[in-house]
């Protein structure tokens, strides 16, 4: 009984390694179509690895509780050792968990925040206006579209998001960016698309409303097409000419 830390530590290591191994085996995230997506995915993967020892410790104590510390024989059997507390354990627990929390705040917290929200410059500005239950795109040359969002690849685009009725949210899962559309306020999001592709290639290449906005919320999505810079300029010119 006195040596119960040995099996618990072994179990802890085993569970942690198992969770880390399992984490490394799978692709957890959808395909990354923008530079920003890589930042988010790296942050998530780091957090997954950091959670392994935490989950592992709880699982280890739970497992050894069932295997090593279970007793039968009803309520009137002997009590356990009267360990009230242990200053060293409590103090080191506090220090370790605080250090972990501080580390997570810095990385991926502030580092990720800086990478995602830090750089306000952009090559193009595309405006999206939300209303129940569709998006209206306005390109830099004033051309507008309702059926799809066409984006130049390899260019940093600023999205100006507006709403004319209730709250909506502008989300492109393939880019991992999201910002709410608020009536009366213009919000912004930035993304640099990396490769050409369409909604048919990946269901996550869509603008999805992510804030409950009423009856048509579920289907308030618009397909995205990422094309080369030249093709994009040609597309918006044609669009403007047709208006």
């Amino acid at each position: 009984m006195r040596k119960s830390w040995i099996p618990v530590v072994i179990l802890w290591l085993a569970y942690s390694v198992l969770i880390i191994w399992a984490t490394a085996q799978f692709t957890w995230f959808p395909k990354e179509w923008a530079e920003e997506a890589a930042v988010v995915d790296e942050a998530m993967l780091l957090l997954q690895y950091l959670s392994a020892p935490v989950m592992g410790l709880v699982l280890a104590v739970m497992t050894w509780s069932v295997i090593g510390w279970r007793t039968e024989g009803g309520a009137h059997r002997e009590d356990g050792p009267p360990q009230r507390t242990n200053r060293v354990v409590v103090t080191s627990w506090l220090v370790i968990t605080s250090a972990l929390a501080i580390y997570v705040v810095i990385n991926p917290g502030f580092i990720g925040l800086a990478e995602i929200r830090g750089e306000p410059s952009s090559d193009y500005v595309i405006e999206l206006q939300a209303q129940q239950f569709f998006w209206e795109v306005t390109y830099p040359n004033g051309a507008t579209a309702l059926d799809e969002l066409v984006i130049p690849s390899e260019a940093r685009v600023r999205y100006d998001i507006l709403s004319i009725d209730v709250l909506h949210s502008f989300w492109i899962p393939a880019f991992r960016i999201k910002i709410d559309a608020i009536p009366g306020i213009t919000t912004t999001a930035f993304a640099t698309a990396e490769a050409d592709g369409t909604f048919e290639d990946d269901v996550n290449l869509r603008v999805q409303c992510a804030e409950l906005c009423g009856a048509g919320h579920a289907n308030m999505a618009m397909p995205i097409r990422v094309v080369s810079d030249a093709e994009w300029n040609e597309y918006i010119e044609t669009l403007a000419d047709n208006e």
């Binding site: 009984m1 119960s4 410790l57 709880v58 104590v61 739970m62 509780s65 069932v66 510390w69 279970r70 007793t71 039968e72 009803g74 309520a75 059997r77 002997e78 009590d79 356990g80 050792p81 360990q83 507390t85 242990n86 354990v89 409590v90 627990w93 506090l94 968990t97 605080s98 929390a101 997570v104 705040v105 917290g109 502030f110 925040l113």
Partner: peptide, 29 residues
């Protein structure tokens, strides 16, 4: 973000309370 992450510290101490109580207990399931 800082304040939110800070909540994990007292929550962790409550978990320590649970795990520490289980430790070498005479567990009656």
């Amino acid at each position: 973000m800082i304040l939110t992450e800070a909540i994990s510290i007292p929550t962790g101490v409550i978990f320590l309370g649970i795990l520490g109580t289980l430790w070498q207990g005479r567990l009656w399931f």
